[in-house]
Computed example of a mutant assay.
Amino acid sequence: PDWHQGVIGILAARIREQTHRPTIAFAPDDDGVSLKGSARSIPGLHIRDALAVVDAKSPGLMKKFGGHAMAAGMTIARDDLEAFSKAFDEAVRDTLKPEDLEAAIITDGPLAPAELNLDTAYLLKRSGPWGQHFPEPLFDGEFKVVSQRIVGENHLKLVLQPAEGGGIIDAIAFNTGPEVPDYTRSGARVVYKPDANTFRGRTNLQLMVDYLEPLNLDGV
């Protein structure tokens, strides 16, 4: 109840990531009688369309709402939270299929070591914009982990090398928390997006990590 409206979008996104469920977080509005909500969705559910279904079936339940496929916002009366929760849950259940609730990661496969360069990152950047039904390319591969460290308390900074050989590559995984496995022992399977990162006037390839898990490269 005492959380600020400015953080509920981050909260909804974190819960969505951990549970793979459409999530709405609410915080009290300044008027003292309303709640402001911030919604984050998963593939398969257009969150604004789901809210439109709620509005059509229960006119006036939301004072206002808006958004797009993956994120939205709304305002409801504090006393209507339970009724809204039921209406939203019904709209979601009518839309999503069981397979939509499986947190599968679909990638475009691996990139060869020779393709892991700035030219590829720039090519992908020029090929957008990406959206709900035209997702940004996502790749996966097996890597040796040369080094790893936590930066900013919650982010994992990595130096990788393709398991089949090649140059070393910087990578970063956001919001991993401070407790992570020692990937330097096992190597890692990494799901990533190539990105051009500029730091102190120099631009290098950096992999933006969506997911990683330990991988025993020695086969033991």
Rank of each mutant, 00 (worst) to 15 (best):
P194N: 10
P194V: 04
E99W: 14
Y122G: 06
L212K: 01
E142D: 10
I47L: 09
P178A: 15
N175C: 05
P22F: 01
D30M: 12
I106D: 10
G131Q: 05
I169P: 11
R200I: 04
Y192K: 01
N175I: 08
K157L: 14
L123D: 13
V190L: 06
N204G: 06
G201R: 02
A114I: 06
T107N: 07
K64S: 10
V145I: 14
K36V: 15
L61I: 15
Y183R: 05
S38L: 03
I42T: 02
A77R: 15
M208L: 11
R14G: 01
H133K: 14
E153S: 14
S85Y: 03
K193Q: 15
F134M: 09
V54A: 03
L207I: 10
K157G: 02
R202Y: 07
E90N: 09
G187C: 00
F65R: 01
L212S: 03
K64C: 10
V180R: 07
G128M: 00
I76E: 04
A13E: 02
V54Y: 00
G177H: 06
A13W: 01
P135F: 01
A27Q: 02
Y122C: 07
L101K: 00
K144G: 01
N117G: 12
Q206C: 08
G141Y: 07
S147R: 13
D140K: 11
F199P: 04
A104R: 15
Q5Y: 04
A50T: 04
M70W: 06
A112L: 14
R40P: 00
K64N: 12
R93D: 13
A173K: 07
D218W: 03
D55I: 02
A103I: 03
P98H: 08
I105M: 09
N197W: 05
F88Y: 13
F174I: 10
A104V: 14
K57S: 11
I172H: 02
R149F: 06
V159I: 13
F199Y: 15
E115K: 10
N216R: 14
K63N: 08
R202E: 15
P113W: 11
D210N: 13
Q161H: 07
K193E: 09
A13D: 10
I172Q: 09
W3A: 12
F84C: 09
N216E: 05
D80H: 13
G201Q: 05
A12W: 02
V191Y: 08
D55M: 04
E142Q: 10
G66W: 03
I8H: 06
R189I: 08
H155E: 12
Y192G: 03
R93T: 12
L215Q: 04
A52I: 02
G219D: 00
V33G: 03
L61P: 10
V180K: 08
Q5V: 15
V220K: 03
P137F: 11
V54R: 00
D55Q: 12
T203F: 11
P178V: 07
A112C: 01
F143V: 10
P137L: 09
H68C: 08
E164I: 13
R78L: 14
D182A: 03
K193F: 06
V54C: 09
D49L: 03
L158S: 07
G6D: 07
L123P: 00
T95P: 01
V159T: 15
L118T: 04
H20I: 05
M70S: 13
L116P: 12
D100L: 00
G219P: 00
K193C: 08
E142A: 10
L156I: 01
I150D: 00
D31W: 12
A103D: 13
V145A: 11
E82N: 12
K157Q: 13
D30L: 14
P162E: 07
L217Y: 08
